[in-house]
């Protein structure tokens, strides 16, 4: 489904601040894989997602999605096949516009010159009610008036309205309080299984990394240093993960806000 082939990314090339963000990363995600990504700060996790969705340019290597090479495709064209959520709940929605207007843009129903129709509104209401956040009664409220958790749930709904081939989640619950984060994770889990999405999720929560999905990869200094799935992963504990990191990276995992336990 997704092939990341030998991709390298360098920041600030040709300056003293030159840094290798991705070092010849190769990764293959079969369709339906739900992969969690962990790693210390600056390991290249976000850069990996950026390079897949097109906001970072690889120095070398190719990205192949569903059989076609998308390395040179601009981000907004890739967005037809790739949904993405960021840590910042403000990034995924237009705050000055209403919930239904945001959804209409994401859904892309009707022609360029058609307004939101009644049947669209019904559809939006039905989809929003599935979030269980009471948003279905606030179609005409500006998105800027929603809480971070509500915005993130809405963004998730928008990103999966037309199920994408690949969903990229970049610590999308990290800015939320624990209870809200749990709720958004729950919605995430449901949407992924309902639409059988292929998903790559960065998390700083080691527990979530093992509980969610069917595969976990660990990154360090721009490389994938550990990749676990199946029985091996099923028996892993959080303590094992930190141990694996020490073995593979040759040092302690240094993350300023890593969460070992909930």
């Amino acid at each position: 489904m997704l092939y990341v082939n030998d991709v390298s990314v360098t920041f600030n090339r040709g300056t003293p601040d030159c840094a290798l963000a991705l070092d010849r990363v190769t990764l293959h995600l079969p369709a339906g894989d739900f992969v969690t990504v962990i790693g210390s700060n600056g390991a290249g996790k976000s850069t990996l997602l950026n390079v897949i969705c097109g906001t970072a340019e690889p120095d070398s290597g190719t990205i192949v999605l569903a059989g076609s090479d998308i390395t040179a495709v601009p981000p907004h064209v890739r967005a037809r096949q790739i949904g993405r959520l960021f840590q910042d709940p403000m990034k995924g929605t237009a705050p000055g516009m209403t919930i239904e207007e945001n959804m209409a843009l994401a859904a892309g129903l009707g022609g360029w010159f058609s307004a939101i129709r009644r049947q669209d509104r019904e559809l939006f209401r039905e989809r929003l009610s599935r979030l269980g956040m009471g948003l279905e009664d606030r179609l005409r409220s500006p998105v800027g008036s929603l809480s971070g958790g509500q915005r993130q749930a809405l963004t998730l709904m928008m990103a999966t309205f037309n199920p994408p081939k690949l969903l990229l989640l970049d610590e999308h619950t990290a800015a939320l309080d624990p209870a809200t984060a749990e709720k958004v994770l729950d919605i995430t889990r449901r949407m992924i299984s309902e639409n059988s999405l292929t998903c790559l999720m960065i998390t700083h929560n080691m527990r979530d990394a093992l509980d969610l999905g069917n595969r976990t990869i660990m990154m360090d200094r721009g490389r994938v240093i550990y990749d676990a799935a199946g029985d091996e992963r099923a028996s892993l504990t959080v303590a094992d993960l930190t141990e694996r990191f020490r073995e593979a990276a040759g040092r302690e995992m240094a993350v300023d806000r890593i969460m070992l336990e909930r």
Binding site: H76, K91, A94, E101, N102, L105, A106, G108
Partner: peptide, 17 residues
Amino acid sequence: MAVRATGNNPDMVRSSS
């Protein structure tokens, strides 16, 4: 709406393809 969203949050416009 796409024009309005461009002034509001161009990233969101891009992710709406």
